[in-house]
Design a binder for these strands. Structure first.
Lengths: 103, 103
DNA sequence: CAGACATTTTAATAATTGTTTAACAATGGA
DNA sequence: TCCATTGTTAAACAATTATTAAAATGTCTG
């Protein structure tokens, strides 16, 4: 179970256009990850700006990084995303969740 | 399908402790909703502060309100939450979503 | 209609956040 | 070793956001 402050941090990390785009790239890529440079190229953002955003995402637990040679690979942490979603929908409709499930 | 800006707005709306607590109360309560006053009592927050947060949540599409007499009932909009989650996990792992589903 | 109640609006202030530029560290190939 | 490449850090500034207090709006009850 996540604490409220962790959830707020994760939501805040995703609540920014550049970071949301980064996260989606990483989700789409899967466990292999994407290098910082590839993300910079795809999003057309300055390296320093991205580095700032990577740090925010990492600190929120939503992404992880590993260094390979000169490259840094970032990957999405799916467990944290799933916990966050679980937190948001917890105890839905007082235990009668039919009213809030997708059709 | 939601647009990125809508998703960012919804995430930003939830990325604040008071609003996250409001939202969870509404999710737990279901379609009946909760009055602004009840939420103020449960969260021990000033009415003006809550009104500000309700507006943020409403504007993001996450909650709806209806007036009944002197009371305003707020309810969670589950469809928007589900769309938001779908947006975040879209195209997961390049179409091979096993790696990112909860166990 | 007068007064009490429920909630919103406005205006002001304090705190947080995003971007840029420049300088810095680490890696690997010539 | 020297240099180009990859990415991070630091400092400064602009912009956004949260909170409070006070005044205003709307709704019911007597």
């Amino acid at each position: 179970m996540m604490k409220p402050a962790q959830v707020v941090k994760a939501l805040a990390a995703l609540a920014q256009p550049t970071r949301l785009a980064i996260y989606r790239l990483l989700v789409a890529r899967g466990p292999e990850g994407v290098t910082a440079g590839d993300i910079a190229a795809k999003l057309k953002a300055a390296p320093a700006t991205l580095s700032f955003h990577f740090r925010t995402l990492s600190h929120a637990g939503l992404v992880e990084s590993r260094q390979e040679g000169r490259f840094v690979y970032y990957t999405a942490n799916f467990a944290v995303m799933n916990s966050m979603v679980a937190y948001l929908t917890e105890n839905c409709c007082g235990g009668n969740p039919d009213a809030c499930k997708p059709k």
